[in-house]
Amino acid sequence: MTLDRDLIVRTALRLLDDVGLEKLSLRRLAKELDVHATALYWHFASKQELLDAMGRAMVQQVVAEGPLPRTWQEWLAHLARAQRQAVRSHRDGALLMMTARPTAEHQVEYLDQLVGRLLEAGFTAESAAAAFIAVSNFAIGAAFAEQQGRDLGEEALDDLILRSGEHPGVSGIVAAAQDLDATFERGLAWLLAGMRAELG
């Protein structure tokens, strides 16, 4: 078996699913690959560099899937859905994305086209960048909340449901938590509507 960056990243993502980000170490990864830990440093200068590569690999395929969107709203919606899907595809995926440095090397062409479409629609360079960041933060933040909620387990959810009977204002939140996809889509629609309103 030839050790290369792609194999290391794929193995690291599989290990992430098994043990979680906190327990993911270069020593554990080296053992999984049946190599000495120092062999990994021929390919990655540090654990942070490996985490960066894992974050890129996690979203690269999903973002590239399907035909490119047409309108600026479709671009931003596609970005949000792809990022959420990618993050949810791995255990602690949101934590990984928050830890990985946002180099976005895999997305350069995609992001250039996205920003170009925003500029054509009337966004300034500054507001186009802010729109990208806002949508990314929303998608990754939503996925993080979903993963954290899933980790709490059914017992915590059952307790919240019981308490919602004592506090009617909470019952709507509990109901929204039962359909995460619909709640995500509504939040995304509100975000895009705010951008449309600002454009006039």
Score class of each variant (00 low, 15 high):
Gln148Met: 12
Gly149Pro: 12
Gly149Val: 05
Gly149Phe: 05
Gly149Asn: 10
Arg150His: 04
Arg150Pro: 00
Arg150Ala: 12
Arg150Glu: 14
Arg150Asn: 06
Asp151Cys: 07
Asp151His: 08
Asp151Met: 10
Asp151Val: 04
Asp151Lys: 11
Leu152Tyr: 10
Leu152Gly: 02
Gly153Cys: 08
Gly153Leu: 10
Gly153Met: 07
Gly153His: 13
Glu154Ser: 07
Glu154Asn: 02
Glu155Pro: 04
Glu155Asn: 08
Glu155Arg: 12
Ala156Thr: 11
Leu157Ser: 02
Leu157Gly: 01
Leu157Cys: 00
Asp158Val: 05
Asp158Phe: 00
Asp158Ile: 02
Asp159Phe: 04
Asp159Thr: 03
Asp159Arg: 06
Leu160Arg: 02
Leu160Phe: 07
Ile161Glu: 09
Ile161His: 01
Leu162Asn: 02
Leu162Phe: 01
Leu162Ser: 07
Leu162Gln: 05
Arg163Asn: 01
Ser164Thr: 03
Ser164Cys: 02
Glu166Ala: 08
Glu166Met: 04
Glu166Ile: 00
Glu166Cys: 00
His167Ile: 04
His167Asp: 06
His167Asn: 04
His167Pro: 00
Pro168Ala: 10
Val170Trp: 09
Val170Gln: 06
Val170Thr: 09
Ser171Pro: 07
Ser171Phe: 04
Gly172Asp: 15
Gly172Ile: 12
Ile173Trp: 14
Ile173Glu: 14
Val174Arg: 03
Val174His: 03
Val174Glu: 06
Ala175Gln: 13
Ala175Glu: 14
Ala175Pro: 05
Ala177Asp: 13
Ala177Trp: 13
Ala177Ile: 09
Asp179Gln: 14
Asp179Asn: 15
Asp179Leu: 12
